[in-house]
Design a protein around this nucleic acid. Structure first.
Lengths: 214, 214
DNA sequence: TTCCACCTCCTACCTGAGGAGGAGGCCGCG
DNA sequence: CGCGGCCTCCTCCTCAGGTAGGAGGTGGAA
């Protein structure tokens, strides 16, 4: 039996979900909240296996409620169910610790599947948003540091500092050598990598993961 | 009618998939490959809407085949179907450009759903692996878009081009304005964002996801 | 030893980038 | 209507950045 806590400020939505879950075996709605502020207390009292959470709510929105809930001890997984397919919401919800993200125009069976997945410790994404998460994943954990191997180790050091936006003078004092020497290294880097100026070098450094954003 | 190309070195698996797809309306298996090396040619000949791809194959494995396929013009989406839930495979397949990743112990209906999703331009992940992708997403893409909103839209355009390593002159011709004007915009950007030079601006652009690596 | 790659530092020179300070035109808002 | 923000373009000036061509020192490999 999977215990579910429903969080949505609209009674209509909650009753719809209640109905859907009741029609299937194996689910029990153990509580409902109309406001994100109530979620923590309700979860502590009812110990649900899954929390189904709307995002747009008055007072405390779903993202903040999710964040607070996930900060408690042994929190239940949160399945976000929202009307709006918005990057801000998606990112915010997942970063707040949600394990599932479904759009409200999903068929009822998808919601059922989602709740089951989360109860099993898995995660669940709406197909409509999976692509975007995938893109982030792809660009996120890059394979190795690609082949900038034509560079000597010193040149590599210099390129890394260029990639951080440092001037030749700063690189010089950072490495404890003269600015002239830095210029020499920089020139060699440009020739070897076919770059035109340090702007191109910075872009190269990011593209080849010699430095990474923020 | 969704045209599907099956790629698996085991005839048994292909026939199983063929059967599953034939039982449902709206699917047509337009080709089969037993080797990753054949995929490119088959896709070019049959123009499938979705490619269902095994990973473990002789000669050319599924990841390499996916990579090659995605490098062609207007490639079909690839749904990876594999026996092994392995991080290396997951990461490799997604990075190679796969839009879906399902495990072979998924129920038939999940495969059907996956193919439909991919044909619709969406993506699809097995619940068992979604969690890991989500974790990467969380730790990876901090803010999808931070507030560089103090910039005017034109300044934002200019910053994006700076971030791609362009010179003032190149930005000018790209935007169809004079280099002098570009310099003016650039100066305003520096003041507003507290940057010292264009090197810092490039780093800023990457850090704030105004441009992204590779 | 000789050779070579690398690191270091040098001079001299040229150009793009950035700062300072405006100016004119367009448009939306009070 | 006038004000202010934005976009556009201008000049004059300075300097960091980049090019060109070298020279001396080290250490490892042939």
């Amino acid at each position: 039996m999977i215990k579910v806590l429903l969080v949505d400020d609209q009674e209509l939505v909650r009753s719809g979900l209640r109905r859907i879950l009741r029609r299937k075996d194996g689910f029990a709605v153990v509580g409902e909240c109309a406001d994100g502020a109530e979620v923590e207390a309700a979860a502590a009292a009812e110990r649900p296996d899954v929390v189904v959470m709307d995002l747009r709510m008055k007072h405390v929105d779903g993202i903040e409620a999710t964040r607070r809930l996930q900060a408690t001890a042994d929190p239940p997984p949160v399945l976000v169910l929202t009307t709006f397919d918005d990057d801000q919401l998606l990112s915010g919800a997942l970063r707040a610790g949600a394990s599932g993200f479904l759009l409200k125009d999903s068929p009822a069976e998808d919601v059922i599947r989602g709740v089951r997945s989360l109860a099993a410790g898995e995660a669940c994404l709406d197909p409509a948003v999976t692509g975007r998460v995938l893109n982030a994943y792809r660009s996120a954990a890059p394979p190795p540091e690609a082949a900038a191997d034509e560079l000597t180790s010193r040149e590599h050091d210099v390129l890394a500092l260029i990639g951080r936006g440092l001037s030749n003078g700063e690189i010089a004092s950072e490495l404890g050598i003269s600015e002239v020497t830095v210029k020499s290294h920089v020139g060699h880097i440009f020739v070897k990598l076919g770059l035109r100026d340090r702007a191109a070098a910075i872009v190269y450094a990011f593209d080849h993961r010699i430095v990474t954003p923020k």
